Computed example of a mutant assay.
Amino acid sequence: MDALDLELVNALQMRPRAPWAEVAEPLGIDPATVSRRWARLSESGAAWVTCYPGNRQIPYGCVALVEVTCVAGSVLRVAEQVAAHPHALSVDVCSGSRDLFVTVATASVAALARYVGERLGTLPDVVRTETSLATRGYREASRWRLDSLDAAQRIALAGSRDSSDGRTRIPEEDWELLLALGVDGRMSLTELSERTGQAQSTVRRRLDRLLASDRAVLRCDFAHVLAGWQLPAVLWLTVPAPQLHATAQRLCALPEARACWATTGPANLCLYVWLHTPQHLEQVAEHLLQHFPGLQIRDTSAVLRVIKRTGRLLDADGRCVGQVPMDLWRDPVEGQDPWRATGPG
């Protein structure tokens, strides 16, 4: 990915559904060039826009971080099987004592128990699972930004944010719209209308309402390896309970921090970071211990391969090669035939 590619991705991180004319002007190119660039990035699987429930939906559903231990020699096979599950939003192959790190979302705690106990845990070659419930999401990856745009470009692209309250459940009539946006977050109103069977005016109204706050979030993502981010990592942290909220907020300000959750289990915080080199992980760990009093690093796992990220199946370079609809409301056990993965989003 060249410098202009990264600027375009950075712009769509800020404004995922912005018209090409509004993206083109700060980048100093014409809208047709922007459109062609995005088509090339999207068709090659180097970048995409997706949509999924935001962190404020955690109280109305369930998010869990599940570590999976596999029989030796079966890790990639198990990872591919898990990646076919709609409820396994992201699947990472990790270093350390656990082989897989799986981000799971379900409609309820009971559905989570069914998924882990009756589907994930019963896969051949799965030896053990360890589940940590995410009790609060402090940061999710749609907030993470490249640093490819200068200050003037960021100001030009900054949009107003609706102040409506997102702390309500996504209504059932919006589930189909959310699934369609998960396939392509820049899908036109015409196509959204065709997919959902709703009038364009209805789609526009529901889309505006859905994206008005953190009920659902749009995210421009990209092949991290092609952009120089070689090593994701998972850090399990423990901080004194009275310091949990303040510490988590400070962790979210770290440039490497992609996601941060408060969790149950031996660690009460989980931090997911993107790094340029293995040595970068040492620097982050040293920074945490020096600048966060009371914080302890209980465990660190380097991500050796990202198999799936928020519904997208990735190759070894992080390119999107398929997509599994994130139908979090379907039963996680009934009808276990996996979704047919589609091509790059």
Rank of each mutant, 00 (worst) to 15 (best):
R209V: 01
R154V: 09
P338H: 12
V9G: 03
V63D: 13
M1R: 08
A223G: 09
G28F: 11
P325L: 04
W20K: 02
T202D: 00
R154G: 05
L271N: 02
G345R: 09
V127C: 07
E176S: 08
F101A: 15
A21I: 06
A46E: 13
E194Q: 12
L4M: 13
C62R: 03
S35D: 12
A341Y: 10
S95I: 07
A246W: 03
A11W: 11
Y115F: 15
Q153E: 08
R340P: 06
L218I: 07
T131H: 06
A3E: 15
E173K: 02
R143I: 01
A241M: 12
G345I: 06
S148V: 03
E7W: 02
W48G: 07
S301P: 05
E176A: 11
H276P: 05
E176M: 09
Y60C: 13
L271I: 13
A39G: 09
V284F: 15
L235I: 05
S97E: 09
R250Y: 11
R143P: 00
R209Y: 06
A3Q: 14
W236F: 11
R136A: 13
R119P: 00
A248S: 13
S160N: 06
E140F: 13
F292C: 03
G228H: 04
L146Y: 02
L314I: 07
S90I: 02
W175C: 04
P242C: 11
H291V: 00
Q283S: 12
S301I: 01
P59A: 00
L149K: 04
V333D: 00
G45T: 08
A24S: 07
V9M: 13
D331Y: 06
G335I: 02
V321F: 02
E191M: 13
S213I: 00
R114E: 15
T190R: 00
R77P: 00
L288V: 10
R136H: 13
L120G: 08
T238A: 14
C260M: 07
G96C: 11
A88C: 14
V23H: 02
Y138P: 13
A3P: 12
R186N: 03
E194T: 14
Q243L: 15
G185F: 08
P86R: 06
D214M: 04
Q290A: 12
R119K: 11
L4G: 04
N10P: 00
A212S: 14
V183G: 05
P338M: 08
H224Y: 14
K308R: 15
G54N: 11
T168Y: 15
A72T: 10
R319D: 04
N10L: 00
A285T: 10
S213G: 13
V333K: 01
S44K: 09
D327S: 08
D2F: 00
Q279F: 07
R37Q: 06
